[in-house]
Lab assay of single mutants.
Amino acid sequence: ETKSLTLVLHRDSGSLGFNIIGGRPSVDNHDGSSSEGIFVSKIVDSGPAAKEGGLQIHDRIIEVNGRDLSRATHDQAVEAFKTAKEPIVVQVLRR
Results as ranks from 00 to 15, higher is better:
residue 69 L to Q: 01
residue 21 I to N: 10
residue 6 T to W: 05
residue 86 E to Y: 04
residue 2 T to V: 13
residue 26 S to T: 13
residue 68 D to T: 03
residue 59 D to S: 00
residue 93 L to Y: 06
residue 47 G to C: 12
residue 62 I to F: 03
residue 10 H to G: 07
residue 31 D to F: 08
residue 33 S to H: 12
residue 28 D to F: 11
residue 54 G to H: 08
residue 95 R to D: 09
residue 87 P to E: 03
residue 15 S to Y: 12
residue 2 T to M: 15
residue 18 F to K: 02
residue 20 I to K: 00
residue 71 R to T: 15
residue 44 V to G: 09
residue 72 A to H: 04
residue 57 I to Y: 05
residue 75 D to H: 11
residue 27 V to C: 12
residue 37 G to Q: 03
residue 69 L to K: 00
residue 4 S to D: 04
residue 17 G to Y: 03
residue 87 P to K: 03
residue 34 S to Q: 09
residue 20 I to W: 08
residue 46 S to T: 15
residue 38 I to E: 01
residue 10 H to C: 07
residue 17 G to E: 04
residue 50 A to D: 14
residue 44 V to R: 12
residue 49 A to S: 11
residue 51 K to A: 12
residue 46 S to K: 14
residue 33 S to T: 14
residue 57 I to G: 03
residue 87 P to R: 02
residue 68 D to Q: 04
residue 36 E to D: 10
residue 20 I to H: 04
residue 28 D to E: 10
residue 30 H to Q: 15
residue 31 D to K: 07
residue 62 I to K: 03
residue 65 N to I: 01
residue 10 H to R: 14
residue 63 E to Y: 07
residue 86 E to G: 05
residue 41 S to V: 04
residue 35 S to C: 14
residue 92 V to K: 03
residue 94 R to S: 00
residue 59 D to H: 00
residue 13 S to H: 12
residue 50 A to K: 08
residue 32 G to Y: 13
residue 63 E to D: 10
residue 90 V to F: 04
residue 13 S to M: 15
residue 92 V to M: 01
residue 39 F to S: 04
residue 31 D to N: 13
residue 60 R to A: 03
residue 17 G to D: 05
residue 11 R to K: 11
residue 71 R to V: 12
residue 49 A to I: 07
residue 37 G to R: 01
residue 86 E to I: 02
residue 72 A to C: 08
residue 55 L to W: 00
residue 34 S to C: 14
residue 6 T to F: 10
residue 7 L to A: 09
residue 47 G to W: 06
residue 73 T to C: 05
residue 29 N to I: 07
residue 31 D to I: 09
residue 69 L to R: 01
residue 89 V to L: 07
residue 12 D to T: 15
residue 58 H to R: 08
residue 35 S to R: 09
residue 50 A to W: 07
residue 3 K to F: 15
residue 88 I to S: 01
residue 49 A to F: 08
residue 15 S to F: 07
residue 87 P to M: 01
residue 26 S to E: 14
residue 23 G to W: 05
residue 19 N to R: 09
residue 12 D to H: 08
residue 89 V to M: 07
residue 25 P to I: 07
residue 89 V to T: 13
residue 69 L to D: 03
residue 57 I to P: 07
residue 19 N to Q: 13
residue 95 R to M: 07
residue 60 R to N: 06
residue 92 V to H: 02
residue 69 L to I: 11
residue 38 I to D: 00
residue 27 V to I: 14
residue 5 L to Y: 10
residue 85 K to S: 09
residue 89 V to N: 07
residue 43 I to F: 04
residue 27 V to K: 11
residue 37 G to N: 02
residue 3 K to H: 12
residue 60 R to E: 08
residue 28 D to Y: 10
residue 5 L to M: 11
residue 31 D to C: 09
residue 33 S to Y: 10
residue 16 L to M: 14
residue 39 F to H: 05
residue 81 F to C: 00
residue 8 V to I: 14
residue 72 A to T: 05
residue 6 T to L: 07
residue 88 I to Q: 00
residue 10 H to V: 09
residue 67 R to M: 15
residue 72 A to P: 01
residue 30 H to P: 13
residue 88 I to T: 03
residue 23 G to D: 06
residue 39 F to P: 01
residue 32 G to S: 13
residue 5 L to W: 04
residue 31 D to P: 10
residue 78 V to G: 03
residue 9 L to Q: 00
residue 4 S to Y: 13
residue 13 S to N: 15
residue 50 A to G: 12
residue 66 G to S: 04
residue 8 V to L: 14
residue 70 S to W: 08
residue 95 R to N: 14
residue 42 K to A: 11
residue 55 L to H: 00
